[in-house]
Structures are given as C-alpha cells and as structure tokens.
Design a binder for these strands. Structure first.
Lengths: 333, 333
DNA sequence: CTGAAAGCGCTAACAG
DNA sequence: CTGTTAGCGCTTTCAG
C-alpha cells in the first residue's frame, strides 16, 4: 500500500504541491479559503508528511543524538538515565526527537557510533565522552553538527561543555565531617584521570588543607567503580582507623555501606559516611544516607538549551558551564 | 560546505554511481579490482553515505522507536530504563538505532508521539502503553510498521506482546510468608486496572485460597504508586495488625519500609516485608530487602527479537510472551 | 496570492 | 561484470 503523498493532497484540494507544503509549514502566505481546502483534503486522506523526504530536502532531521557510557552495573546508570530524561523532555518541547546510544565506556564503540551519527542522521549531539585524553573527537566530529559535551570535559575545548562542579559539594561534605571532629577521613574513588574523579579528590585535599589537617595518602583508596571494589577499599580504610569515609561515586558508596553493615560497624557512631548522587532509595537505608547531590536533570536541560542556541546559528566562542553540586545531610554523618 | 556524495566517489573512482552503491551495500557482484578503486576513492574523500537519502529511497530508516511512560518520581523509571538499555544493546547488534520517547503516562502525549513516529520515521515500535482500555492504538498504529507491546497488555491483541508474569513471583512470595506462619498478610498496590497490578493481586488472592487463609478486604490497600502513598497505606495496615506486608511495586515498597523504620518496627521480627523489583541498592537496606525480581533487560531483548522477526517478514499470528518473575529472598522476611 | 519544476542523495530496475 | 536513469516525497526558487 502506497502512502499518501503531498501530491495526492494537492490534487484533491485542487492546488499545487507548493501550496500544500506552504500550508503545512506556514512558510508563506496562503489565502484562508485555500488553506481550508488543503486542511480538509489532508484530513480526508489522513495525510502524514514523510519526515525522511522532508529531512533530505531541508537538510534537517530534527533528531538529536545522545551518547552515554552505560556499563552493566545497574546503579551507575541512574545518573545518565536521569540526564537522558531531562534531555528528552526539553527536546520534545522544541520539536526534536532523541536518538539514544550507549558507548559502554568503550572508546571504539563510541567513535563508531559517532561515525554512524555523522551521516546526516542527526542535527546535533550530546555526548558524555569516554575518554578525555584522546583527540579522536576532533577527527570524527567534523563540524557537521553542533555538539555539547556533558559530565566530562575533553582535554581541549572542542565544543560547549556542561559539567557539574562536584568540587563544591565534596568540599562541603569534607568540611562538615571535619567540623564534626573527624580528623581521619577516608576517601574512596574510582579511577582517576576523568575530570569528575579528579575534581572530587582535589576538593577533598583542599578541605583538609584549609582546616590544617594532615594529608595522608594511605587514606585515599582508588579502585574500579564497582560495588565489590567499594566494599574492599572500605575494609582497607578500616585498618587505617578512619572515623569517616567519603565515597566519590554511587556504586562504591553502596559497597562501602554494605561492608560497614556486614561488620556491624554502627553508622555514624563508629564511622560516618557521605556518598555521591541522590536517589529516593537513600531514604530507606538505615541510617538514611547523606550524599552529594548532582543536578542531573538540569544538566540535560542545559545541554539542550546550548544545542538549540547553536542550531539557531549562535557563533559565540565555546563555553564551559558548571552546575553546582550540593550536600544533602541525612543521618549517616 | 557541500557534502561528498556518491557521485563524487563514482567520478573519482571512474565508475558509475550504481557500482559505488553496490560496493557499499554488497548488493551485487563487483570485481575485486573495481571494489578496490571504489574503496580508495571513498577513503580519500572521507565519504559518508547520507542515511536520510538512503532511507527515502529504500523506505527503511533502520530506526526503532521506544515509547515508555516515565513519571517524575526517580525510582519508577529504573525498570523502564533497564529495558531501554537491553533494547538499545540488541538493536545495535542488528544495525538499528533507537529513538527514545516518553509519554509520561499521559495518553494524549503518547498518541501524539505515535503520530510523530508514523511519518516514515521509524521501522518499528516498542511501546509500554499507557492505557490498556482505550482503543486509540488501532487508529494510530496503522500497520505502517510492526509494533511490540511490552510490560502492559492492551485489551485487544493488537500485536506481539512481551509481559512479565509477575504472578509467579508474587505467588512464591506470599507462599513463603504463609509457610513462615504469617496469616495476616497485607497487600499494598498502585491503581488496579493495569494488567501488572491486577495480576499481582490475583496471585495474592490465589495463594491465600490455596492455603486456606481467609480473604480479608481490609488487608488490601490500593493507592497511587508513590512513596507517600506506600507510607500511608502501611500505617493503615499496621492498624489491622498484619505481621507481613507485600508491596506490589518498587516505589510503594520504599514508602512502606520508610514507615516501618520511622516507627522503629523491627523487620522482619515484628513485620516481614517483600517488595517488588530488584536493584543493587536493596542490598544495603537493613535488613536487605527480599523482592520479586523482574527480568527487565531480558524483556527488552525479547521485544527486539520479535520486532526483528516481523521486519524479516514473519506473518505468524500475534503472540503474547510471558517472562517469569522470581522471588529473591534476603533478610526482610 | 499561487504554480511549475528542479533537485536533495540514494537505490534498483533495466539494459547492455 | 558495469552503466544509465527514474524516482522516493518533499522544499523552494523562479516566474507569474
């Protein structure tokens, strides 16, 4: 069954295809009378414009790509999914659709997917880059569409970037722990080298310094961003006799809490803990967990806004935006 | 700057556009020699095929739409996001892209989005329908592309459907509680009328019956699927002096647990509780929560498989697939 | 105020 | 084994 084309509508309404197109897109004046005829014909035939043909001709797909680095572990994804949610919502308001793709933290997959996108498929790209060191972005992002980097900053300023200043919240967290009298505060983090991790560690070090606490490398534990790693590193920290722990990502936070519970170490009486990322379920841990909260939804929103500006022809120099993180105090510290 | 077209490659390689196209798509035999010339030309020009033009001509976009009903509450979304993840992964393996859209549980938004999709934009649709009663799906899904319904079953069998048999896991859960000696078991659920809720309630009732326990309507609490509602209904159940509670969705589970913790009611000593949906973080509640687990990722996978079959021309009658849910026993019962 | 017609980049039928 | 060319459905220029 052949679809109804603009031609069919034109014939039925006894006008030209140009007129139908213009009625459809409100792109030049059409007499009320004529408009009415066209609308009627469209309705009668149940006409639906072919968006692919439209894209080909107008060189605009109204589709935005989103490339995120999800890995299998259930929990690390909530953050990006929340971003995706924010993005989708704002895009829809602007008449755009969202193509979602996952790099799985794999640089090769990521670059391949960028190539797929780079075939007139999308009008713009929002990407949480896998790697901040390599420069393959320059090669593959050939300026065919505007791009916004989120959450992680590539080494060179290649495009607009929206980051969360997780230093702010981290500093607040460490500061609070210090004020509560803790002077041996453990720090658990995933691999360094990505901006988010580095930033959190720096804030930790700065807070210690500002409050004249000694910097002790044995209190800084670096592992993979997994539940098990968080668990294990907590064990190591306990040997160092810390009285407080800060975990720099949500997955490791869970591993840490799990360790403390397994070993019946009372929170916060024996060890205080502050984690990363805020989710509803943190209200039902016991005690409810204090965390540094990242405005994920807002980040998605901001990214879309920047993209829309570029799509509207903005030629401003690239900029980096930082949304503040925030300490949410509950019962674990 | 104009893009490189197939024509440019053809000229450079000194062949026809047809040959280039056939090399690209491996759609007819081309001499090794010629192939090589073409590949070289493509590489030299950094040619990237225009997927929009390709779609227009071949009437195939290689894009699949996914329409889910996310609402603002953080937690209810994990389930669908996990499905989305499964879908994206399998689609990519098949050379497809995923357009993600959100109905927000709003029937109007959902139908509008279907119309947007219904413009040659997608080759297939996977949808978790908002409403199982209305029949607007028939009107808007005009058979232009294959569709797979997931998680919720529309009243009429309109297309292939993948459901999770949450009855299985629910029955197991109630059975376990009964065997542990509970005879006043509360049941908290969101609004009835959607297949998932109904199924869980039925399983609850059946288990009671099978074990000759009285059916007591005052132990069945129906509310909105929110944290607060779960909290409130738990309060009501406590007045009925239940010794065990089953919560039929993840959000209400959290509300329920929160109530019990707030009122220092020991779990499972005073009240046992079994919830719905399994996530990593349930390991760090105290006690770790027992739940009925839904195979969300697998559901996404299955949905894609069905879609691929249809896209490959399968004309089988529509079928409903049910993936089993499963009780995961931890410390809360 | 409206129409005719070119052409976006590609695929595939037809013709050698 | 390869080339020519029509045409997918739409937008938009040019011409009234």
């Amino acid at each position: 069954m052949r679809n109804i084309r603009i031609k069919d509508v034109a014939k039925k309404a006894d006008v030209s295809t140009a007129t139908v197109s213009h009625v459809l897109n409100e792109t030049r004046f059409v007499a009320e009378e004529t408009k009415k005829k066209v609308f009627e014909a469209m309705k009668e035939l149940d006409y639906r414009p072919n968006s692919v043909a439209r894209s080909l001709r107008s060189r605009k797909s109204n589709i935005i790509g989103l490339l995120v680095p999800l890995v299998a572990s259930d929990t690390s994804n909530f953050f990006f999914m929340s971003i995706a949610n924010g993005i989708e919502q704002v895009l829809k308001e602007n008449g755009y659709n969202l193509i979602l793709s996952n790099s799985g933290e794999d640089l090769q997959v990521e670059q391949d997917q960028i190539k797929v996108f780079n075939t007139q498929l999308i009008d713009g790209l929002i990407i949480a880059p896998v790697d901040s060191k390599h420069h393959s972005y320059e090669e593959n992002l050939r300026g065919d569409f505007p791009t916004v980097f989120i959450d992680r900053q590539p080494k060179d300023l290649l495009s607009d970037t929206v980051l969360i200043d997780s230093g702010v919240g981290t500093y607040e967290a460490i500061e609070l722990l210090i004020r509560k009298g803790h002077n041996k505060i453990g720090f658990i983090t995933g691999p360094l080298g990505i901006t988010t991790s580095d930033e959190r560690l720096e804030a930790y070090i700065k807070a210690l310094k500002d409050y004249n606490l000694p910097y002790d490398e044995s209190l800084i534990k670096i592992g993979s961003a997994t539940f098990d790693s968080g668990h294990k590193l907590t064990a190591e920290l306990m040997k160092e006799e810390v009285t407080a722990i800060f975990t720099a990502n949500n997955v490791m936070t869970m591993g840490a809490v799990n360790y403390l519970q397994d070993h019946h170490i009372p929170i916060p009486d024996k060890v205080a803990i502050i984690g990363f990322d805020d989710y509803d379920w943190l209200r039902i841990t016991s005690p409810p967990l204090s965390v540094v909260k990242q405005p994920s939804f807002e980040m998605g929103k901001k990214a879309v806004e920047l993209l829309m500006e570029r799509l509207n022809g903005s030629e401003e120099p690239f900029k980096v935006y930082r949304l503040p993180s925030e300490l949410v105090v509950r019962g674990s510290c």
